[in-house]
């Protein structure tokens, strides 16, 4: 039984809290066909660039296209991997250094699948989804983040 839901927004305003993540895990305890979960958490790093430290990242997105891309990644993941369910949440707005901005959660009856699926999904998000991060320094100047 796959919980393939139609297009839903993956965006959340602000940081993704550890309570939200813990609650997501809790909600899967009724799905007893699952034998393995895997979770990716993207955390905002306090990079030091030219002597200035990143205090936060402010995320914006081309939301219509981004939700379409998230949907395609989701369809593709279900096609290619034996997943029971998957969830993606990405922050919009300001996320401070040390806080979580991306939460990807995959579940399957067996472990091998979740390792492969999670990497596929995270790499696809980085490459294909139009999200833009503005790195805000402690002195309130900024630069635009580029994924490496």
């Amino acid at each position: 039984m796959k919980d393939k839901k139609p297009m839903k927004s993956v965006f959340k305003e602000g940081a993704i809290t550890s309570e939200f993540i813990g609650n997501s895990i809790y909600k899967h305890q009724t799905k007893t066909n699952i034998g393995a979960h895997n979770i990716f958490l993207g955390q905002v790093r306090a990079d030091e660039i030219d002597g200035k430290t990143v205090a936060a990242i402010e995320y914006t997105a081309y939301e219509d296209m981004a939700n379409q891309k998230f949907h395609e990644i989701r369809e593709s993941a279900f096609e290619n991997f034996d997943l029971t369910c998957m969830h993606i949440y990405h922050s919009l707005g300001t996320v401070k250094a040390g806080e979580i901005c991306l939460f990807v959660f995959v579940s399957s009856p067996r472990r091998k699948v979740v390792f492969e699926a999670l990497e596929f999904i995270v790499e696809a998000i980085k490459a294909d989804v139009p999200v833009f991060g503005k790195e805000i320094f402690e002195d309130e100047s900024h630069q635009w983040k580029v994924n490496s």
Binding site: H90, C101, F132, W144, V146, N147
Partner: peptide
């Protein structure tokens, strides 16, 4: 039409 700078999600 949308003009999209390099993506930097995640």
């Amino acid at each position: 039409i949308a003009l999209l700078p390099p993506f930097s999600g995640g």
